[in-house]
Amino acid sequence: MIEVRVQEAPFDAGVELDRLQRLGVGGVASFIGVVRGDGGLTEMFLEHHPGMTRKAMQAMADEAAARWPLAGIILIHRHGRLVPGDPIVLVATASSHRAAALESCAALIDLLKTEAPFWKRESFADGRHHWVDAKAEDDLAAARWH
C-alpha cells in the first residue's frame, strides 16, 4: 500500500496511522511536520508546482518501497495558508522490521525537504514576510540516502 496525497485540507494523523497499524505487520514509524510559532511567526504559506509535486512524492515513495521491506507508506503534504500548530506533512511507514520502518521514514522526510517542489513563505506579527532559504544541512541529510 503506497498512498501519496497533496492537499490544502488538514489531515488526521491518528486516522492515517491507524490505517497502517491495521495492516498488522509489526511496526509503524511516523513523522509529523508542524508549523512552528517561534519568532512571532503568524502564518506560513506553502506554494507548490501542482503538476510536479505528486509525481515527485510518488517517486520517493516508490524508491523507499524498493529499498526497504515495507508493507505500507503514507505521504501527505499540505499547501496553502497554515498557522502555528498546523500539521504540514505526514510521513508514515509500516514494516515487520523496526529498522526498515524507522530508516525509511527518516529518508522520506529528508527527501521531501530537498526534492519535492514546495516553497515556504513565513509571515510575522510585525508585518515582515520572507521566503525560507534552503539549508545546506538539508541537502547533506538527503544525500545520505542516495
Binding site: 509525481k55 506533512v89 517542489p117 532559504d133 534552503a134
Partner: peptide
C-alpha cells in the same frame, strides 16, 4: 516538463520550463 534539471540542460523538445528557488518542503 516537470522533471528537475540542471541549468545546463538543453531545451530541445521542451514544452514547459519552471524556474524557482531551491525547494523548502517538508
Amino acid at each position: 516538463d516537470q522533471k528537475f534539471v540542471s541549468l545546463d540542460a538543453k531545451l530541445a523538445g521542451a514544452r514547459e520550463v519552471a524556474l524557482f528557488p531551491p525547494v523548502t518542503g517538508g
